[in-house]
Structure formats: structure tokens, C-alpha cells
């Protein structure tokens, strides 16, 4: 339950993700380019870039 003065984890998560739209777009394009034949780790490199960005963004805030 969201209590006053406390941010829910998903809000923090959403906030950090919102700072990585550029990396997200690169990853999204990579998957979308081949969406009918997606295999595991097809876009691992792009995802790692997105994840790094997210981790940095999450750290900076808290």
C-alpha cells in the first residue's frame, strides 16, 4: 500500500527507467527489427547498455 512519504519501489524503478529512453530505444529497435524470430540474448549487447544506464540512474537518485 502506498503510504504518504514513502515511494513505492515501482515508482523508483519507473523514474530511473525514464532517464534511459535513448538506450531503451536502441534495445527496442533491435528487438522490433526481428520481432517475428526472437531468440534468447539476440540483443544482449543493447540490453546491457540499457541496464547499465538504469543502474547508474537508480544509484544517482537514492
Amino acid at each position: 500500500m502506498p503510504m504518504s512519504g514513502r515511494t513505492r519501489p515501482i515508482e523508483k524503478f519507473a523514474e530511473a527507467t525514464a532517464r534511459c529512453t535513448a538506450e531503451g530505444a536502441v534495445y527496442g529497435k533491435c528487438v522490433a527489427a526481428n520481432y517475428q524470430n526472437v531468440s534468447k540474448d539476440m540483443c544482449a549487447r543493447e540490453f546491457m547498455a540499457l541496464k547499465d544506464c538504469y543502474l547508474k540512474a537508480a544509484k544517482r537518485k537514492v
Binding site: 524503478f13 527507467t17 529512453t21 538506450e23 531503451g24 530505444a25 534495445y27 527496442g28 529497435k29 528487438v31 522490433a32 520481432y35 540490453f47 540499457l50 541496464k51 538504469y54
Partner: peptide, 25 residues
């Protein structure tokens, strides 16, 4: 998992995202 959520957000935005009234997606 957080990884899957992060990936889902990026894919959703790429495939279905539309320009909103304030210029954002």
C-alpha cells in the same frame, strides 16, 4: 523480474509508443 520489466518497457515504447500532447511519448 526487473530485467524483463526493463526490456518490456523499451519494447512497448518502440512498438506502440505514440507522441503525446506534451511532446513526450
Amino acid at each position: 523480474s526487473r530485467e524483463v520489466m526493463l526490456a518490456t518497457e523499451a519494447i512497448y515504447r518502440e512498438l506502440y509508443g505514440e507522441e503525446g500532447e506534451d511532446g513526450g511519448t
